[in-house]
Design a protein around this nucleic acid. Structure first.
Lengths: 198, 198
DNA sequence: TGTAGCATGTAAGCCGTTACATGATTGA
DNA sequence: TCAATCATGTAACGGCTTACATGCTACA
């Protein structure tokens, strides 16, 4: 019987599998967190450290990963490698589970919908800040994309990175246009005031 | 002291505030769920019924909404309206809280990154299904957009709906190109086989 | 008569976060 | 010697889902 794991668990197994393609050492929880922050974060989540360790222990209990205790220079650390059943569990999951539709939690859109309660200045400031954050995120992803290069073994990670870049570009364009529409809305309000008072 | 509420709580208050702009009856939990499925779902979440009722009771305890018990034709139902402090709490939140960066949970991208473990056919099938689902979602949002119209009072909801539509369009285009790249990847693999065996 | 929709809730439990606690190593 | 980084965990708690439980109304 295959254990029922969360999607995040499988995502972590995936990171370990792809790591084992380049090295046989396995990864520490700390390294896994770093990797998740660099990649997983753009299309899934960046789990907290505490969750990484919790998941790692769960996977170990299920026999999907094997810990390799090692004291690198006297410092205690545990490296994890995927077992054969871990690899099989991932393959099964990839083969049978339904992806489902993406979920977007967009706090900027959530506030923008109430823009009339915020006023033009607050909306404009919010969109400005979002544009900045967007540019920064895009930069982070772009440097990840550079590291991937055009190695055919990383064709799919490259596709997903490009997907993210295209998404950020589209988002930047849309936010730009929303900026203009907000200004137009404010101008219209002034126009209405004139009519009402004139 | 302002009570600390989750973003979802404020989102629900927002729905009630916008409802009170068109009617003074307030909304039942059931109606709120329906509204959330139609709107909130596209940029935040579609909370379960049970959560709607839980939140509504929490807001009531904080004095942010007022229940209006009413038996519509013998059927028991409770309609909620936003109180003055509820409206103030929302304004405060809109004025002071930092939106933070959007979080995208994209199960299709998560699987695509492991495309080499899935094989071309499985990847292609997944992308096909995603395209269908995308088209359907876009249709749902388009009909919401139609209902909004160009009423200037709903300028911001219209902007957010257009944002969503543009997002879905961009996504459809990207997925289309990923489809082609997956085919090219498979073709390359065949080419490599030829070289290795030739 | 029965099904779909309206309407409201409770209980159990998972996923994930923040806060807290501990300690070694490296380099400025 | 101090800060940053490496490294690992526990405890408390919040948010949210699923499953369960209940009952009325309209309509085919």
């Amino acid at each position: 019987v295959p254990p029922t794991l969360s999607t995040t668990s499988y995502a972590l197994i995936g990171l370990l599998v792809f790591d084992s393609a380049s090295s046989t050492n396995g990864m520490t929880g700390y390294e896994l967190k770093h990797r998740a922050d660099l990649t997983l974060r753009f299309y899934w989540v960046a789990p907290a450290m505490s969750q990484i360790y919790t998941e790692l222990d769960r996977l170990r209990r299920h026999g999907l990963v094997r810990p390799r205790a090692s004291k690198a220079g006297g410092r205690r650390s545990t490296r994890y490698v995927v077992t054969a059943s871990g690899r099989k569990a991932l393959d099964d999951w990839l083969g049978t589970s339904q992806p489902g539709f993406p979920v977007l939690k967009h706090p900027v859109a959530l506030r923008l919908v109430m823009g009339s309660l915020m006023g033009e200045e607050a909306v404009t400031a919010m969109l400005d800040e979002y544009q900045k954050a967007l540019t920064e995120r895009r930069g982070d992803l772009a440097s990840v994309r550079l590291q991937i290069g055009d190695n055919p073994e990383l064709a799919f990670p490259a596709m997903v990175a490009d997907w993210g870049l295209a998404y950020y570009d589209a988002e930047a364009e849309i936010v730009e246009s929303l900026h203009r529409r907000t200004a137009a809305w404010a101008a219209d309000l002034v126009g209405d005031d004139d009519e009402a008072s004139g």
